[in-house]
């Protein structure tokens, strides 16, 4: 049934990191720009990494067409997972559908370097299970208010990378980036935070560099 799986001594043992693609989770509140960041990362990284995307977001054929038209990824490299209205459950408490999607992508497409798992839009408390991803990025945006880093929550506090997105909007919404940087540092200790504007940097350079470092590392 799954011929390739049988090359392992135990066909059902979970693939260990190294034997499978690196998995990076991308989470964050609704509207913070997760999908746009995923698209930017795909455009920037697709040339030198074999990658695929699992999305837990509500995914329409229009979304697929958009990604395809913009040269982001062909449809067969994107899998949508239905979460039964429980986006946090699907990435944290019961990760089975996401694990199946990650494994199916590698099974169908051959060896991959990177699978990006995009969470459905949720709130500040949602984080990925370590059983699902190796690293996680949490995306917040300046339009959500400059108090967000201070509020903390597991996403802001523990994500391997915090992305403060849409910095181009800061003057319009009266958000103080220095306050956000200070609060993020206080919450996160040594964990990195980057500020991003996809309008000014459509390649999402600092995030792409961070991801590349993990894959190559």
């Amino acid at each position: 049934m799954h011929p390739e799986a049988h090359t392992h001594p135990d066909p059902h043992a979970p693939l260990t990191a190294g034997a499978r693609a690196l998995r990076i989770g991308i989470g964050g509140p609704v509207g913070s720009g997760k999908t746009a960041l995923v698209a930017a990362l795909c455009r920037t990284l697709a040339a030198d990494l074999r990658l695929a995307v699992v999305t837990n977001d509500i995914y329409t054929t229009e979304d697929a067409d958009f990604l395809l038209r913009n040269g982001v990824l062909p449809a067969d490299r994107i899998r949508a997972v239905e979460t039964g209205c429980c986006p946090h459950t699907a990435i944290r408490d019961d990760i089975s559908a996401n694990l199946d999607a990650c494994e199916d992508l590698e099974h169908d497409l051959g060896p991959l370097d990177l699978v990006l798992v995009e969470s459905g839009g949720d709130n500040l408390t949602a984080t990925f299970s370590k059983g699902l991803v190796d690293h996680q990025i949490f995306v917040v945006d300046v339009a959500g208010g400059d108090k967000v880093p201070r509020k903390g929550g597991p996403g802001v506090t523990t994500a391997d990378l915090l992305v403060v997105n849409k910095t181009d909007l800061a003057p319009l919404v009266g958000a103080d980036l220095s306050v956000m940087a200070r609060d993020a540092a206080a919450r996160r200790g040594d964990l990195p935070t980057v500020f991003l504007s996809l309008v000014e940097d459509p390649a999402a350079t600092p995030v792409a560099d961070w991801v590349r470092g993990l894959v190559k590392g």
Partner: peptide, 11 residues
Amino acid sequence: GRFPAGGHAHS
């Protein structure tokens, strides 16, 4: 219902 066997995604 919290047993992690994918049930939450099926109606």
